[in-house]
Amino acid sequence: MKLVVLAKPVPDPAAAAERLGPDDRLDRSAAPNVINGNDEYTLEAALQIADAHPGEVEITLVAMAPANGAETLRKGLAMGATRGLLITDPALAGSDAWSTARVLATALKDVEYDLILAGFDTSDGVAGVVGPAVATLLKLPYLSSAAKIEPDLAAGTVRVRRISPTGFDVLEAPMPALIVGTQLLGTPRYPSLKGIMGARSKEVALRSVTDLGLATAGDGAVGGAAARTTVTAKRTPPARGAARVVRGPAADAAKEIAAFLAERRLI
């Protein structure tokens, strides 16, 4: 079985160093890059499928990012993915969610897969539309908010547990399909040293805009030129207020916290 995991290199949110550059685009050099947190959950789901079918599953990480994204993808390879595919080209700078989805969809036309897994959203862009857009462009069944993914290779179908406000729905679709996962898929594993060492020699293929047959201008344009959204204004979020710490014996503290939440109609 062949799985594709969309894994976006993003500035590490823990470094709290996300900055906008002078062109109002994210300054990707300000912080070390990591694989987007939510994408790691879907990668974990893919790895669990691979664990359950030893030797039968290949996992390809696919991303669109600046060239240093190849090193970030190695972290996913260290966790256990088979190979990486990075679409990188200076012409892609300034892409919005739509143009990103189009580039990914184009790149995926040359990739064999039974399932594409995408994270809920990314910590830098927080649009949450690239996954569904890729599904639309590739005309794939789209299963969202997955808490559990159960492919049935013999039947050629995949069954997904989709969380809902009241519980969960069970969805089934023929493969290939695209699934957007949630954090309920399971905590991403920490790579072993053997995994880290092994990742050094795994392949990360690089593709440029030209390789994909996309143009930098005109109808097939990519990057900022093809973006359908523009930044019109920006504002720094207000600093977070001080936390209120509840102290005292557990029973009293619990009452106080409950009252605090009730007062705000949160419970």
Binding site: D12, A14, A15, P32, Y190
Partner: peptide
């Protein structure tokens, strides 16, 4: 190093030390 087998809460500490060079996960700035 071989099995990645450890109490789950350590994963955060490891990632913090690896990512932002301190186990608290605070921004170096």
């Amino acid at each position: 190093l071989e099995d990645s087998r450890f109490p789950q809460e350590l994963s955060g500490a490891f990632r913090n030390m690896e990512g932002v060079a301190n186990p608290w996960g605070q921004p170096p700035s």
